[in-house]
C-alpha cells in the first residue's frame, strides 16, 4: 500500500503553505474561469492574461485541499510566461502523468474534461515537468487525482476562452 510520504512530498507541502501567484487580475484584459470538484466542493479560480499568444500573467484563487492547492500553485509557476502552445503541451503532459494507466500509447486526454487542449494527440517528450513530477504519487491515491487535475482543467478552459476573446475583433 502506498504511504503518506508518496503523496505529501516536501515540495508539495511547500507550495501548499506558500502558494505562488495567488490573487486576482483585472478582467478584462484577463479572463476569469472557475473550476469545481463536485465530489468535495473544492473550487479553483484562474485569472489568465493572454496576449501575443503568450501567458503574460496568471493568478489563482479559490479554496481546496493541499493537493489541489499545491497543484494549482505549481501549475501557475510552470506556465507563466510560456506561449499558449507550450502551456497546452504542459497541460497534456501533466494530465498524462496523472493517468492511472501505466502504459500510454498516445498522449490523449482520457479525462475528457481538458478537451480544450484540442488538436491531434501527440506524445509530449520535450515537456519538462520538473517540480510537478512530485505530484506523480497522487496517481496511487485515485480519489485524489481529481484534486490534482482541477486547476489544469480550469486552465485549459481559460486558454480556450482567452483565445476566443482575442479571435473576436473588438
Amino acid at each position: 500500500m502506498p504511504g503518506l510520504e508518496d503523496l505529501y512530498r516536501e515540495i508539495i507541502l511547500d507550495h501548499y503553505r506558500n502558494p505562488r501567484n495567488r490573487g486576482e487580475l483585472p478582467t478584462p484584459p484577463a479572463v476569469r474561469v472557475e473550476g469545481f470538484n463536485p465530489l468535495c466542493g473544492d473550487e479553483i479560480v484562474v485569472f489568465l492574461d493572454v496576449a501575443d499568444d503568450r501567458v503574460q500573467d496568471l493568478r489563482i484563487g479559490g479554496q481546496g485541499c493541499s493537493i489541489s492547492q499545491s497543484s494549482a500553485s505549481m501549475m501557475s509557476a510552470a506556465v507563466k510566461g510560456k506561449t499558449v502552445a507550450e502551456a497546452r503541451a504542459t497541460i497534456r503532459a501533466f494530465k498524462s502523468l496523472m493517468s492511472i494507466h501505466e502504459q500510454r500509447l498516445d498522449g490523449a486526454d482520457d479525462d475528457g474534461a481538458g478537451a480544450g487542449a484540442g488538436g491531434p494527440s501527440v506524445p509530449e517528450p520535450e515537456v519538462k515537468l520538473g517540480d510537478l513530477e512530485a505530484l506523480q504519487g497522487v496517481v496511487r491515491f485515485p480519489v485524489r487525482i481529481k484534486c490534482a487535475t482541477l486547476s489544469w482543467n480550469t486552465l485549459a478552459q481559460g486558454l480556450d476562452e482567452a483565445q476566443e476573446t482575442s479571435a473576436t475583433p473588438s
Binding site: 503518506l4 503523496l7 465530489l39 468535495c40 481546496g64 485541499c65 493541499s66 491515491f141 485524489r144 484534486c147
Partner: peptide, 21 residues
Amino acid sequence: IHPHDISQVLDEVGVCVRAGH
C-alpha cells in the same frame, strides 16, 4: 486543514472518516 487531507492522514493509521459535503 482541509477535510480531504485530514481523512487521508487518518487513513494512515487505520482511522476511517468521511470527508466531503
